[in-house]
C-alpha cells in the first residue's frame, strides 16, 4: 500500500463535510481531484489521519461567467473549465494556461479550485487568480469569508486557509473590454512543470490604427515564491501598439529584475531568469501586434 493509513470520509452534503472538518481539526485534509494530494500521500510526504473526500458533494461543479468574472465551483475539473465557452469568452487566460496543466488524463480529474488550495508557485492556476485579481470563497462551520488572491497565498504550498475551511469556489477577474491576454511557458517535456512561465494582460485604448497601450500586467510560473501580479504600466503606457517592440526590452528587464527564481536540478536560477525575460518579451510583442483581434486572441508560441 503506497500511502500511510488514513480514514476516508465521503460526505454527501456540504454541511456534513464542514462538521467533519470541525470535529477532526488539523488531522484531516480535504481531498477533491487528488492530482496533487495523492502523489504527496503516495510518496509519504504527508500522512494525515483523515481524508474528507468532497467529490460526492452536489452542485459544486458549476462554471458561471459574466462581465464580472468567471466563478468556478470546487469540483469543476481543469477539463471542464478549459472547454467552457463562457469562461473562455470572459477570461481567455484560463484556457490559454490550462492547456499547459499536466496532461489530459490529469485535467480530467484535477480541479481548478484544488490547484488554488495546493498553492504551488509552479502551478498555472494560482498565478491566473493573482493576475486577474480574483478571490476565493472559504466556508467552515463558523461561517464563510471571501479571500482575495493577494491574501490567500502566504508561501510556497501555503495558504491562509484554516484546517476546518473548504474552498467552495474561486472567481477569476474578467478580461475587460479592450484587454488582450496571453500565456506561455517553457518546460523540458510537454506537461511537465514549467522552467518559467508568464501570463500577461495588455490594455489599449482600442483606437484602430493609432491604438495606444494603456496598461500591462504580468504573473509568473516557477520563478517567484508566491503567485502575484506585477504592474508594468510605467514601461509601456502611452506607447502606440505599432511601436511595442521599442519598449519590449524594458518589459523584459523589469520582469528579470522583479522575479526571484531558484536553482534546482532542472535549471539554474540565471537560466530561469533569462527564460522569463524572453517569454515576457515575446508574449508582450505578440499581444501588441494583434490589434485586429482584441480580447480572444490566443498568444501561444
Amino acid at each position: 500500500m503506497k500511502p500511510a493509513p488514513f480514514t476516508l470520509h465521503r460526505p454527501r452534503t456540504l454541511a456534513a463535510a464542514l462538521e467533519l472538518l470541525a470535529e477532526l481539526g488539523p488531522d484531516a485534509k480535504v481531498l477533491a481531484g487528488g492530482q496533487s494530494l495523492v502523489p504527496v500521500l503516495n510518496m509519504r510526504l504527508a500522512a494525515p489521519a483523515h481524508l474528507v473526500d468532497i467529490t460526492a458533494l452536489p452542485d459544486v461543479d458549476r462554471v458561471e461567467s459574466s462581465g464580472a468574472g468567471v466563478t468556478v465551483g470546487a469540483l469543476a475539473t481543469h477539463r471542464a473549465v478549459e472547454h467552457d465557452a463562457g469562461a473562455h469568452e470572459h477570461q481567455p487566460l484560463l484556457r490559454q494556461a490550462l492547456t499547459h496543466v499536466a496532461h489530459p488524463a490529469i485535467r480530467n480529474r484535477g480541479t481548478v479550485v484544488g490547484s488554488l488550495a495546493h498553492a504551488d508557485p509552479n502551478g498555472e492556476m494560482p498565478m491566473i487568480l493573482a493576475l486577474t485579481e480574483g478571490h476565493v470563497r472559504a466556508v467552515s462551520s463558523r461561517g464563510e469569508r471571501e479571500i482575495p488572491a493577494a491574501e490567500l497565498f502566504v508561501g510556497p504550498l501555503e495558504t491562509c486557509l484554516e484546517p476546518d475551511e473548504i474552498l467552495v469556489s474561486a472567481t477569476f477577474g474578467a478580461a475587460g473590454a479592450g484587454a488582450r491576454t496571453g500565456f506561455d511557458e517553457l518546460a523540458r517535456r510537454s506537461g511537465d512543470y514549467a522552467l518559467a512561465g508568464v501570463g500577461m494582460v495588455l490594455a489599449t485604448d482600442g483606437d484602430g490604427a493609432a491604438e495606444t497601450i494603456t496598461g500591462l500586467s504580468a504573473g509568473f510560473v516557477s520563478v517567484t515564491d508566491l503567485p502575484e501580479r506585477l504592474v508594468l504600466d510605467e514601461h509601456v503606457a502611452g506607447t502606440p501598439t505599432a511601436e511595442a517592440r521599442e519598449v519590449a526590452e524594458a518589459v523584459a528587464a523589469a520582469v528579470r529584475e522583479h522575479i526571484d527564481p531558484i536553482d534546482d536540478i532542472h535549471a539554474t536560477a540565471d537560466y530561469r531568469r533569462h527564460l522569463a525575460g524572453v517569454i515576457a518579451r515575446r508574449t508582450f510583442t505578440r499581444l501588441a501586434r494583434t490589434n485586429d483581434r482584441p480580447r480572444t486572441q490566443e498568444a501561444h508560441a
Binding site: 492530482q35 473526500d53 460526492a56 489530459p104 488524463a105 480530467n108
Partner: peptide, 22 residues
C-alpha cells in the same frame, strides 16, 4: 495505470478505490 472513469481517461494510481463509489 490509465483507466476510464465514466468514459474519461484518469490515472488509477491517483485515486482511491473508495472514491470510485458509484
Amino acid at each position: 495505470c490509465t483507466v476510464q472513469l465514466d468514459g474519461r481517461p484518469v490515472r488509477s494510481c491517483l485515486m482511491f478505490a473508495a472514491s470510485a463509489e458509484g
